[in-house]
Write a protein that binds this DNA or RNA. Sequence first.
DNA 1: AGCACGCCGACT
DNA 2: GTCGGCGTGCTC
Length: 700
Amino acid sequence: MATVARVVLDSPLPQLDRLFDYRVPAEIEDDCVPGVRVRVPLRSGARMTDAYVVEIVADDALSPENDFPGELSAVEELVSPVPVLAPEVWQLARAVADRAAGVASDVLRLAVPTRQVRPEKAWLARDRGHVPPRVTAVPVEGYGDAVLEGVIDAGGRAAVSAIPHPVLLAAPTTTAADDADSTGDADSTDTGDADSTGDPDTADSTSPAPTWVPGWAATLAQAAAHTLAGERSAVIAVPDFRDVADLERALLVLVPAERVVRFDAKQTNGQRARALLTARTHPVVAIGSRAAVYAPASELGLIALWDDGDPSFAEQRAPYVHTRDVALVRTAQSGAALLMVSHARSTDVQRLVELGWLREVSPYRARVPKVIPTAHQTNADGYAAQARIPSSAWRAAREASHDGPVLVQVSNPGFGTGLVCTECGERAHCRVCGGPLGSPHAGSTPQCRFCGALAAGYRCPTCGNGRLKPVGQGAQRTADELGRAFPNTRIVVADGSRPIDEVPARPAVVVATRGAEPDVAGGYACVLLLDGERMLAREGLRVQEDVLRIWANAAAKGAPGAPVYLVGIGGKLANAMALWRLDVPAHEELTDRRELFFPPAVRVATLTGTDEAVTGAIEALGDAPVGPVLGPVPVDDPTPGTVRAIVRFPYGHGTEVAATLKAEVIRRSSTRRVVKGGTKRRAAPALRVRMDDAEPFSEV
DNA sequence: AGCACGCCGACT
DNA sequence: GTCGGCGTGCTC
């Protein structure tokens, strides 16, 4: 009896985004299993396409009325007998693509690394019956008696407020197993002497030394260890590379290295391929940035995200699906538990909480940061007056700097955000492109921040004066100021171009741009959050939640109960920080967005293309949209004559809207336009659809 | 993507 | 009468 392989083609064409059937030649029948890569002929024999086998069916199980009625072509080649596409990852890719009106093979490109021969051979040669060391159960500390364990074991879902300070994480004692007398207080984490009883059930004969890790990392490592102890996998996605490092450090205290696999952008393809195959072999904890959420972890028991509001979770490649959404789809498909851990709450998670879909879990008696808001004066130009740091904060910082490091968070790197004329205060602009001038170093030649042109010999066009001074404060400038104010203290600057992962727990002033704050064992003695006002002045739908997130994450780098000065901020946001009730602004923000039909209260789709295609797509949607359709308006991107429109629709219509838009894309892709003019050349697709853009209104 | 199929203008 | 233009549609 012959068999038929049902395959997904590795092609970005939407009209090919469905399964195709091929005959399986007898020679490869044994190895042609779901998940393997094959090459198949597509259209008139000679040309080959890469594909993954998704399903093997007996050809007498095909029904003539439902399946392809013609003669099947044969699979041309089995590329490798290693099944790299796990069935659940295929299901995930399909659902994620459908949700985004996108193409499944685009999702697969994010989920499956390109073929690597060496790791595959190593995997095939290896004893697949290998049993990895067992993982000792540890309690998830700080959340009351087995609260999070209960969520995980029940396949539940929770929005978890992270423990807002560093935690000293110690390896479980070899007797471990029962969590009976957990105090539920992360501060009391047992330092535990490094025992060397050499329990054969644990990976190493010597336990790792206790390590300071961020509170969230301790919680997620313990949650993962709990999941692994039940022989189930955990998948944990975090925004960036440094978070991966923190989490890995925490995990290696609790679980054998063999059980931890990484997926991140800095890996080579070979490393990713190895991680992928390991994850399929036995239960692991898969950690990493966006790609980790697609890890083919066997027996999935837990999916978790740290800081889901971080913009890094927005995928940059088609179909632009946010890691949070992938996690939600995967949770629904797998029945695994879901933990959304953060300090600040995203409006997206708040929506799920208000729906009752996520349960709220907070630390039990956590010591929250002692946030002290100090509203402050600005001068008439709107620039911070000389007293940038209020005297109370000065005093506290100076005092704290005797005991340990003080963190100073600023919004921008370098020396300042702009230059103004010393005489008339006019902002200096580039003579080439009109962009703002800045100075990368003290006293260096002014340079355009947009086009990079140097502006030597600049004269103010208003008053003719030739001298400029910086306005706004970058990290370097702040560091210089503080250096004068703290004469005998070490000053450290950390920003995007000079990243510092960790500073010693010694007196120092650490000036860091938002998001680049180094860790310190035990936490900072004091935290100053300086440029809040400027950060809030940005345009955008998510500025407020983003700024809260940035503040909260820095505040949580302080030692338990350390003072945190929130400079120049009053009102609701200051209140939320002071009370450490970061859900309140999220609730209010979400309420506003419901009234305005803005995401995430509703979903959005951005339609780009020819006027006819965009208008046609809007008509095809019928009455699914809510709120007025925005546009179509002309945009000359990617080609002149293009228009863009934004439609908004309730979550309940998502499936229908995505399917309709995908059908429109397919319809328009078969009739391609030819640009008028002498030489005919291929034009942009007549219709492009992007769903759930985080900042959909920024360009319309 | 590519390539075949199909219905209207100037050529042996 | 036919050769060939590229719009349209399909790919197991």
